[in-house]
């Protein structure tokens, strides 16, 4: 077993893992982050997407030991402690960006990363930027609408209150 130290959703955590333990399994089975789901287990679907040092990665395709010393942000850290939704969560809610919801944790985390790379994407850039996430309900139009709306909402709030967007809720910059 190997001892690893991670900052998960802004809290410092340690875990004892086997070298073969996948990050997604460490998150779900040892760190209580069951909001991050295993979808395809073949690196295709993106449901297990988390931010690793701010970059969206598929947590089924990273060994937990490879994340030692890193910051991991999951869907469970997106909302404020008082339950206020992150603008991207709010936009998915308002624009029907989910049907069964299984792909949603990965969609949200990829969208967070996409909008940090490119705060005002075109619709085409959103479609390409979300290429690594599959929705088996094929509800892509709602998802694209939600990401576009979140981009708009976050840009608007940036103008109104810069500090609130400089550090999106629960996501370390």
């Amino acid at each position: 077993m190997v001892s690893i130290r991670l900052t998960v959703d802004n809290v410092e955590r340690t875990a004892e893992v086997e070298p073969r333990t996948l990050l997604v399994h460490a998150l779900r089975e040892q760190l209580g982050k069951v909001g991050t789901v295993v979808g395809c287990d073949t690196s295709n679907c993106g449901a297990c997407t988390v931010l690793l040092d701010g970059e969206s990665v598929k947590s089924c395709s990273v060994l937990a030991v490879q994340a030692d010393g890193s910051t991991v942000d999951t869907v469970q850290g997106l909302a404020q402690p008082d339950g206020t939704l992150h603008p991207i969560q709010q936009a998915f809610h308002e624009h029907h960006g989910l049907q069964c919801g299984y792909c949603t944790p990965g969609m949200l985390m990829r969208a967070v990363c996409l909008l940090s790379e490119n705060p005002t994407p075109t619709e085409e850039e959103v479609r390409h930027g979300m290429e690594g996430n599959m929705c088996r309900c094929t509800g892509y139009q709602g998802i694209v609408d939600a990401v576009m709306a979140a981009s708009q909402a976050m840009s608007d709030s940036y103008g109104a209150n810069q500090s609130s967007i400089a550090e999106p809720a629960g996501v370390a910059s």
Binding site: G46, E55, V57, K58, S61, C113, E131, G132
Partner: peptide, 9 residues
């Protein structure tokens, strides 16, 4: 190559 997540790793 692949998709954005794969290109980060």
């Amino acid at each position: 190559i692949g998709d954005p997540q794969i290109r980060y790793r």
